[in-house]
Structure formats: structure tokens, C-alpha cells
């Protein structure tokens, strides 16, 4: 496993198209361990494609993605084990209970002490009381919390989050921010796509904006994240 570890994620001139539709266009950036990176942009700007490529589920049409010094193909199975993804579709089985969902993925990730890991995760998600209830009976916020813990089960080096604040109330989004900071402190690379600029304001180290598949760094400067994003979009 150690050989598959990495401390940086690099997109080098990555382009991806589906047929004639271009989702990403010569995207280049690097993030380092301990950084939280925000990917901003309108719907359909290519944020989900970017996350899928970083998650190794999609291959770029051109350009390369490097995890440390290795590509997804070199890293193989072990590399996948260092990535955690919170997708827009949450990756949970509605028929299974919260505990069963976590236990299934813990086993799939080859973890030794499944029960301890599951109950620790359920405690963090504040779902211990409803651990035995099927996920289909959960509210959106509860599912979102569970999905986040599912993504963090194996303490990934690279954490990819697609709109993680959707459906969370203030307390829950506070907890999420705390979890992200914890991951950051433990040396994870965190990539977040979001519309909720206020929620991540205090967390973000770097941000860039995707416009029709092109990535540009969000200029540093005065004002809140939203003000800077507005002025970026206008210009």
C-alpha cells in the first residue's frame, strides 16, 4: 500500500470530451497534501467530470493525471484504495441499514476491525441511534452525513467531494467543515465542488473556476469568496 501513496495531485493539460461535447478543456493544476481546493463554476461547467477523472473512473481524452509521480494505471488497485469519493448520488444502498452500508464498504476496502470502524463512523455522523434503520427512511441530511463517513472510512489521501453541503442544516455543515479540517490536518488532499461559497469560505486554501471546461485560478485579493467569484465571472 505504501508504494501507492502520494502527496500531490497534478492535472496536466487534461481534456475530456464526450462525443463532440467538451467537458474539460486543457485543465492544469496541482494540489498538495494538506490543502483544501475548491472547484467553482456553473452547472455543466465540467466539475463532475473533473472529479470523476481524479477518481480514476474516467480516463482523459488527452493530457495526464498524476498522483505523486504515478499515473492511475501505474497505481492500480492500491491507488484506488487511497481515494475517497462523496458523489452527488451518495453511493448508498437504500435497502440496507446505515450500519450495513458502512460495513459493506469497510469489508470491500479490506479493513480488519469492521465493527469498530463502523461504530466510530456512525458516532461521527450522529446516526448511532438509527444505525439499524434502512437508509431509505433517512432524510437527505442524514444520508449526506452517512455518505460523507462512507467516503472517509478508509482515511483516504485524496478526498473528492461533489456538492457536500447539499441538504445539510447549519449544525451538520459545521460538523462537515470540522471533518474537512481534520482530513486536511492529517495530510489529505481535499477537492470540493460547491455552490455554497459561504460554507467553505474559511476552509479553502486555493480555488479555481471552471467555465465551459476551462479552469482559471480565482484571483486572490480582498472581499469574500463570493465577491471574488462574482467579479471573476463578470470579467
Amino acid at each position: 500500500m505504501a508504494s501507492a501513496d502520494f502527496t500531490s495531485l497534478t492535472f496536466r493539460d487534461v481534456t475530456r470530451h464526450f462525443g463532440r461535447r467538451r467537458a474539460l478543456h486543457h485543465v492544469t493544476f496541482t494540489c498538495e497534501a494538506g490543502e483544501i481546493v475548491a472547484v467553482l463554476g456553473a452547472n455543466g461547467a465540467g466539475k463532475s467530470t473533473l472529479l470523476s477523472i481524479a477518481a480514476t473512473l474516467l480516463t482523459p481524452s488527452a493530457g495526464s493525471v498524476l498522483y505523486g509521480a504515478q499515473s492511475a494505471r501505474d497505481g492500480g488497485i492500491a491507488l484506488r484504495g487511497r481515494i475517497g469519493v462523496l458523489g452527488h448520488d451518495l453511493y448508498l444502498y437504500p435497502e440496507l441499514t446505515a450500519a450495513e452500508n458502512l460495513a459493506f464498504f469497510a469489508r470491500l476496502y479490506g479493513m480488519a476491525n469492521v465493527e469498530a470502524v463502523v461504530s466510530a463512523s456512525l458516532t461521527r455522523a450522529a446516526l448511532l441511534e438509527c444505525a439499524g434503520e434502512p437508509v431509505s427512511s433517512f432524510s437527505r441530511g442524514m444520508r449526506q452525513r452517512l455518505a460523507l463517513e462512507r467516503a472517509l472510512l478508509h482515511s483516504p489521501r485524496l478526498l473528492l467531494l461533489d456538492e457536500p453541503f447539499t441538504g445539510l442544516d447549519d449544525t451538520a455543515s459545521g460538523v462537515l467543515r470540522e471533518r474537512l479540517l481534520e482530513s486536511k490536518r492529517s495530510g489529505a488532499i481535499v477537492v470540493v465542488t460547491t455552490h455554497d461559497l459561504e460554507s467553505i469560505e474559511a476552509l479553502v486554501d486555493t480555488a479555481f473556476v471552471l467555465t465551459a471546461g476551462r479552469a482559471e485560478p480565482l484571483r486572490a485579493g480582498p472581499g469574500s469568496l463570493r465577491q471574488r467569484y462574482r467579479s471573476h465571472v463578470v470579467s
Partner: peptide, 18 residues
């Protein structure tokens, strides 16, 4: 269809298993 509903097929493909 079940695996597709919440994209759990993707989640399984992400796992570090052959």
C-alpha cells in the same frame, strides 16, 4: 438498476479490489 440508482456500481469500482 439497483446498482445504478445511487451510483453504487461506481462506488464498488472505486474500491481497491480486483
Amino acid at each position: 438498476d439497483r446498482e445504478r440508482q445511487n451510483e453504487t456500481l461506481r462506488a464498488m469500482l472505486l474500491a481497491p479490489v480486483p
